[in-house]
Amino acid sequence: MTSPAIKVNDLVVEYMSSQGTIRAVNGLDLSIAEGEVYALLGENGAGKTSTVEVLEGHRSRVGGQVEILGIDPTAGGSRRRELRDQIGIVLQTSGIEPEITPREALTLFGAVYRNPYSLSEVVERVGLGDFVDQRVGSLSGGQRRRLDLAVAVIGRPRVLFLDEPTTGFDPSARRNAWELVRSLHADGTTILLTTHYLEEAGFLADRVGVISRGEMLVEGPPRELQQAHGRSVMSVEIAGAGSLSDVEASVAAVLDGISSTLAWQGTRLLITTEETTKVLERITRWALSTGADLSEWSIERPSLEQVFLELNADIDREGDDD
């Protein structure tokens, strides 16, 4: 299938607040292929939840075109039912009555789809076995989020929306949820997730989009973002060049003209820069000429988290200039 599973053109979302009209999403474009896992990253208020709510059909838009599997989420009647049958949604609020059990909830929800998973299959895949017959009201936060996931996937969705699916999970529950997402991915499910956890996005997503103030800042595969947008951290032990402050002064002088920052971690000098080759060359030349001894060189690529923080810091600086 060549047409994308999720297609968004020039999306504009506004909502009213006591301060007047706020534009939450401002001309966003998004195209997600069938079978792709896409992570939408952004700080609180960046517009990611507003975007997902429009795609889910839970929020109206001011402008732009949106299609999920070729159907506008605001469609009514049989088109609406057709679309709802093919999508699964994990909302930020659970939406299951505390008085019933996961087994009862899944039986009830499973009955409305054309081709649902069986109860036992979902219970096993999501890991509900321990508490499938307990009241929902007595479940822990993490158990309840697992139930939310189970309810979202019971209809065997082609497109799955996960709005902060692992918020409140402990590490092992998060691992289980990731395994589930990966197995759904392997089945060919298209998945759009929003998350605060960059590790999660990096681990799960084929592509990541970073949004800020309702606009797409940058998107691409996580590795490419890391390579294109972050500064590496180089570290090295330097001996035979005097005290630490002498070393720092010398290195600072040698690196004059190269954008970099210096810091110490014990006796290791940390150099944060985008221009790793130049730094390496200058420091090596300086060490050869002065007889200083360099050992334990390492170069670390930035984490997705650093990329994200830097992109947002850039935006804030631009904002301050206004």
Partner: peptide, 17 residues
């Protein structure tokens, strides 16, 4: 109460008429 628990929105996300 069910609206505040998100139950109504949850069902609105399903193909149930």
């Amino acid at each position: 109460i069910r609206r505040e628990e998100g139950v109504l929105q949850r069902w609105r996300s399903t193909p149930l008429p």
